[in-house]
Computed example of a mutant assay.
Amino acid sequence: MKPFQFYNKIKNFFIEIGELAYFAGRFFKEFFTRPFEFKELLRQCYTMGNRSLILVGVTGFILGLVFSLQTRPTLMKFGAESWMPSMVSISIIRELGPVIFALICAGKISSGIGAELGSMRVTEQIDAMEVSGTNPFKYLVVTRILAATLMLPLLIIFGDAIALFGSALVENLRGDVSFQLYFIKVFKALHFSDIIPATVKSFFFGFAIGLVGCFKGYNCEKGTVGVGEASNSAVVYTSMLLFIIDFIAVFVSDILFEI
């Protein structure tokens, strides 16, 4: 790669970061102004939650099964099978669950938003809304970002519960541990310092998923090729942003709870 081309890529990257920040600022500005699209917000919440529920549930169940099956032989070598519920619950609820389910939702929700808004931009439906006097940003963008922010924590909680059930099923079949005893150990091992950071960062995950998907779709280039690029780049950018948010959240939570 020539130095000039590398310079252009770096410059375009920072330009896009600035545009994304401006897009986020516009969201907060429109969020506090009337009219409030409650009906569309509820519809988006139902659509995102309903379409992702089965996928998150299946992923969580398999996560719990595989994690327990892979970990149990190692713990058996040290005679530490009794630590299985504590280890699985803390690992899934603190880190694995939020990150994995957020990545699953990024592929499902963010790409869907990017493709939907990109198609509307290409077919000039957004331009028609602007000409008719309505606010397309308020109706299309604000509702979707807010819906993703609200629904992702619920999906993560649901996925964590299914994952713990899958792990409990393995322990019940392989270790002859009752479901009641398993979940008693699970809740005994968990503390607020495990649950609160995971819940708080899930809201930021949802915001990132909705923001990047809407940004890519709303600013989609003309042509059908642009719709595919918007959908694909929404997933890539969201996945990178999720890892950055997760690193910051872990770093901040460690500092706060150490204090």
Rank of each mutant, 00 (worst) to 15 (best):
L190S: 13
V250D: 09
F247H: 12
F257E: 07
D246N: 10
A161S: 14
D254Q: 14
A168N: 02
M240N: 06
Q180H: 03
L169T: 07
N172P: 08
F158P: 00
I157E: 03
F192T: 14
G206D: 06
Y182M: 01
I209H: 09
T199Y: 05
V200A: 13
E258A: 11
F158Q: 03
F205I: 15
V200S: 14
G213E: 06
F215V: 05
L241I: 04
Y218W: 02
L241F: 04
L169E: 11
A249W: 12
I209K: 08
N172T: 05
K188T: 15
V225F: 07
D246Y: 03
I157P: 00
V236Q: 03
D246K: 03
V227R: 04
I209L: 08
A189V: 10
F205A: 13
S178R: 12
H191E: 14
N172D: 05
V225R: 12
L181C: 01
F207E: 11
V236L: 11
V250C: 06
C220L: 07
F187P: 03
F257D: 06
K188G: 09
G166N: 14
S202V: 05
I162C: 13
T224S: 07
L164M: 05
L181T: 04
L211W: 15
I245R: 13
E221Y: 08
F203M: 02
S239A: 06
D246P: 01
D194R: 06
F251M: 11
A249F: 09
G226L: 03
A230P: 00
F183M: 13
Y218N: 01
L154V: 02
K185Y: 08
T224K: 05
L173M: 10
L155S: 01
T199R: 01
A230C: 00
S167K: 03
G175Q: 00
G159P: 04
I245H: 12
K188P: 02
V252Q: 07
G206T: 05
K216G: 02
I157H: 04
A163Q: 01
S167Q: 07
Y237A: 03
A198C: 02
D254G: 11
F205V: 10
F257N: 07
I157M: 07
R174L: 12
L256P: 05
F158C: 04
A234F: 14
P197A: 09
Y182A: 00
D160E: 11
V225N: 13
G159L: 10
E229S: 14
I195M: 12
H191F: 12
E258F: 13
G210E: 04
L169N: 08
S193L: 15
G166P: 12
V177Q: 09
